[in-house]
Amino acid sequence: MDASEVMRVNRALNKMSKLYRTAKARKLEALGLHPGQDVLLWLLAQEPGGMTVSELAGRLGIEPPTATRSLSRLEGGGWFRRERVPGDRRQVRIVVTDAGHELVPRIEQVWTELAEETMGGASDEQREIAVSTLEQANDRLRRLVGEAVLAEE
């Protein structure tokens, strides 16, 4: 790549990252959520029996203390409850409540709207090329930073 193309790629990726996060934050704000909380709640809702903080952290590719902090920030919404794990007093399972399950379709709607608005009038072929290119770039960056593939990004 020549210098002008390098600058163009860097500018486009940086700008898209910031704009996407801002747009997502604005849409999630209407649900009482912040970016990242949507993925956490959605992931928890996929497990009817709930999961431990360690399991959740593993699925998200984060450390358990980070998952605990994220849950603490999310707790006020009444979207999940903590249940003791029988036989292990140190562990709790995080189980999504009915209110949390009711929020999941709205989270998915936000994701759908954001994807459609982001891709605009791109054809099926253009979308496939764009998404495949971004997925390949993510894979290369994961290898570069030594990060495992996450459950959802």
Rank of each mutant, 00 (worst) to 15 (best):
E128G: 09
E102C: 02
V96N: 06
A122T: 09
A151P: 11
V85N: 00
L134R: 11
E147L: 09
A137I: 05
L150F: 11
W42D: 13
P35S: 03
G32C: 02
R73E: 14
M119P: 00
R90F: 10
T118C: 07
E83G: 05
G121V: 09
W79S: 05
L43R: 08
S132H: 12
T118Y: 09
L33P: 00
V9I: 13
A57C: 06
V110W: 01
W79R: 11
K27G: 00
H34A: 15
P65A: 08
L60R: 03
R127G: 06
D98C: 09
A137N: 02
D98K: 14
L150P: 15
K27W: 01
V85Y: 02
T66R: 09
E153D: 12
G100H: 03
P48H: 08
D2W: 00
A23E: 10
L31N: 02
S72R: 10
M51K: 08
E55L: 01
E75I: 14
R84L: 11
T22L: 01
S17P: 02
V104I: 10
V149T: 15
R142P: 11
R142G: 10
E116S: 12
T112S: 09
L74T: 07
R93Q: 04
R69N: 14
G78P: 09
E47P: 12
T97E: 05
W79A: 07
E152N: 15
G121H: 09
V149E: 15
L74M: 08
T68E: 12
A30P: 02
S70E: 13
L28T: 02
D88E: 01
A23Q: 10
H101Q: 14
V96K: 06
K18I: 04
M119V: 02
I62Q: 06
E147G: 11
H34Q: 14
V53R: 13
L71I: 04
E117N: 10
G146H: 08
A137Y: 02
Q136N: 12
W42I: 07
K27F: 00
R69D: 12
R142D: 12
T66H: 07
M51P: 11
P65K: 05
D88G: 00
W42T: 12
N10H: 15
E55D: 06
S123H: 02
E116V: 13
M16W: 13
D124Q: 13
A30Q: 07
Y20K: 05
V53Q: 14
R90I: 07
L103G: 03
E75R: 15
A122P: 04
R69A: 14
E116K: 10
L28V: 01
L56K: 05
G100C: 01
R143L: 10
M16K: 14
A25T: 00
A151N: 11
A25R: 00
L41M: 03
G58S: 05
L44W: 07
L44C: 04
T68R: 11
A130S: 05
E55N: 05
G76T: 02
A45M: 06
G146W: 10
H34Y: 09
T118D: 06
E5M: 12
V39R: 09
Q109I: 04
G100I: 02
L41Y: 02
E102V: 01
P64W: 00
R93L: 06
D139I: 12
L56G: 13
N138C: 13
P64V: 01
T118W: 09
L31C: 01
W111C: 00
R69F: 10
L60W: 02
T118I: 06
L141S: 11
E153N: 12
